[in-house]
Computed example of a mutant assay.
Amino acid sequence: MRLPEAFSFSSPLKINCGSRALENLPTELAAFNANAPLILANRDQVGKKRVNTLIDAFKTSGLTLGIYDRLPDQPQPDLMPVLARIYRDGGCDSVVVLGHGSVVDTAKCLNLMVSAGFQGRLDGAGRDVTDPGPLRPLMLVATAGGNGDEVTGFADDGVRRLCSPRLIPTVAFIDPSMMKDHDDRDVVDGALIALVHAVEAFLDDTAGPMCRAYAHTAISLIVKHLPAVLRKTDRKKSLCAAVNGQVAAGCAFFSSTPGLCHLLATRLKEGTDLPLGFLMAILLPHMVAEVGVNQPERVGELMYPMVGADIFAVTAADLKTPRTIALFWEFFDALNAELSVQIPSAIGDTDLTGEQIERAQSRLASDPSDDLVARILEGARRGVSAIDN
């Protein structure tokens, strides 16, 4: 394992996972002398039953609860002062958020507002680069359908993309009782985003060994358990495992540099209704193949979390890279066997036009890796046949 000359890794997140994980919520809050949490949720997203289950976790705690379970599907800047007023008027001292996606973004932004305000300096990407100092406890009750971004220091307030390690939740709770039976496409979309983030973090030479350890865990959990989720094999348990993988992927993603699959898919998404994770999946095998040309050993190491130590050990060194790429195709085929909306094997199978693809490529034209971008896109246009050749 190569050790970079310099790297930085921080994962302050604590994880409580299991069938009684929610029972630890009052104890975790008490560790920070917090006794009046504000619970945030989108009832339409998670269902009234799960909101009530979360409230029941505090039944014998003696804590005073504030509850707002009507959060919108997208961040709304005008709502933030309202939530801050509810927080302050209710004498709240912490935040508990149930859900994923923009609901968690709203909770992060609210915690920043009530703890430190929004005053700060932005970098060229519009991210806040001023350290706001310690924030109040933020407890995340995770649900299926996320993509790992929930446990990062990123947050979208509806106007800008905030970035600070302080925004990372204090504790994440992964409890089977919170694993609502979400739409399969949404679950797969989030898991694929997390998987690609983990693979790119694993291949990032500057990220360091701790980041790779989180990425290794994420890849293993998602690849092993996501097909079982779709086959409805002990679904809640499988969902918990996949969500654990997404959490690990989020920790790795925040400590690494966003890779080309992430950047390209984000730009391509502007021209299609296809889920972002599906776009990332189209690009992933071709990105891995290109990296494997110059770093076959590094790509070959990706096989380990996908198949385990025994098979990895008996596979010849020169076969590990092509076998790793084949495993990704096999994984996507296994998902497609259960999905009504398929993961396309090539960009040509999507509704993206050649002009839209070229525009996405041109937006990265000033990047030193532009030739690599062109090769990945050309491979993605041709699909699996490009790698066979």
Score class of each variant (00 low, 15 high):
residue 1 M to C: 13
residue 4 P to G: 13
residue 7 F to D: 04
residue 14 K to W: 01
residue 15 I to K: 01
residue 21 A to W: 04
residue 24 N to A: 14
residue 26 P to D: 04
residue 30 A to H: 10
residue 35 N to K: 09
residue 38 L to K: 12
residue 39 I to D: 00
residue 42 N to I: 11
residue 44 D to N: 15
residue 46 V to F: 05
residue 52 N to R: 10
residue 55 I to D: 02
residue 57 A to W: 01
residue 61 S to R: 02
residue 65 L to V: 03
residue 66 G to Q: 06
residue 67 I to P: 07
residue 68 Y to I: 10
residue 83 L to F: 00
residue 84 A to T: 08
residue 94 S to T: 05
residue 97 V to S: 01
residue 97 V to P: 02
residue 98 L to V: 04
residue 99 G to L: 07
residue 105 D to I: 07
residue 106 T to N: 08
residue 108 K to R: 06
residue 113 M to W: 08
residue 113 M to G: 02
residue 115 S to H: 00
residue 124 G to C: 07
residue 129 V to Q: 12
residue 130 T to C: 12
residue 137 P to W: 02
residue 146 G to I: 03
residue 148 G to L: 05
residue 150 E to W: 05
residue 155 A to K: 05
residue 156 D to F: 14
residue 157 D to I: 03
residue 169 P to A: 12
residue 170 T to D: 05
residue 171 V to Q: 08
residue 171 V to N: 06
residue 175 D to A: 09
residue 192 L to F: 04
residue 197 H to S: 10
residue 197 H to C: 12
residue 198 A to N: 14
residue 207 A to N: 00
residue 214 Y to K: 02
residue 235 R to S: 09
residue 236 K to I: 03
residue 245 G to V: 04
residue 247 V to A: 01
residue 247 V to T: 10
residue 251 C to F: 08
residue 252 A to T: 02
residue 256 S to L: 05
residue 258 P to R: 04
residue 258 P to G: 04
residue 260 L to Y: 05
residue 276 L to Y: 13
residue 277 G to A: 06
residue 282 I to V: 08
residue 283 L to G: 01
residue 285 P to A: 11
residue 288 V to E: 02
residue 292 G to D: 08
residue 300 G to L: 06
residue 301 E to N: 12
residue 309 A to Q: 14
residue 309 A to H: 13
residue 311 I to S: 11
residue 312 F to P: 00
residue 313 A to K: 15
residue 314 V to Y: 12
residue 317 A to E: 15
residue 322 P to L: 09
residue 325 I to F: 00
residue 330 E to C: 13
residue 337 A to Y: 03
residue 339 L to R: 02
residue 340 S to Y: 07
residue 341 V to Q: 09
residue 343 I to W: 08
residue 346 A to K: 08
residue 351 D to C: 04
residue 356 Q to D: 09
residue 357 I to S: 04
residue 359 R to K: 14
residue 361 Q to R: 13
residue 362 S to E: 09
residue 364 L to G: 06
residue 365 A to S: 15
residue 367 D to R: 10
residue 368 P to G: 04
residue 373 V to M: 07
residue 378 E to R: 04
residue 386 A to C: 03
